[in-house]
């Protein structure tokens, strides 16, 4: 948001009409550690997807494959690594 809207430009009632626009707000810079996946070990069980608090595990639902992480939003909590049954995800420090 480069310029904040004036009162005349706002939707009445304090309503937000752009559903899901929080996606444009990046929380990735909260991270001190980033998850990395070793796809050779991954069995595409989708546990990481299911338990990610931030919906930041990228999957191809049609192919049924785990595709990595949305680093724009991943906060680096490490839940994905903790739940991975094959230890395919490791947390590495952000540089």
């Amino acid at each position: 948001m480069s310029r904040l809207k004036t009162w005349k430009e706002l939707t009445p009632g304090g309503i937000i009409c752009e559903a899901g626009n929080a996606r444009t707000y990046k929380t990735g810079d909260w991270r001190t550690e980033r998850p990395q996946v070793d796809k050779a070990k991954c069995i595409n069980c989708f546990f990481c997807w299911a338990y990610c608090p931030d919906g930041s595990v990228r999957v191809d639902a049609d192919k049924g494959t785990m595709e990595g992480f949305d680093y724009d939003h991943c906060k680096g909590c490490g839940i994905c690594a903790s739940v991975c049954p094959k230890q395919a995800i490791t947390m590495v420090p952000e540089r």
Binding site: T6, W7, G13, G14, I15, I16
Partner: peptide, 17 residues
């Protein structure tokens, strides 16, 4: 047209609302 009613409105917008 999904809308969000009653969001958290802080010092940057509450006054304008």
């Amino acid at each position: 047209h999904p809308v969000t009613y009653g969001p958290l409105d802080l010092f940057d917008y509450y006054f304008e609302h």
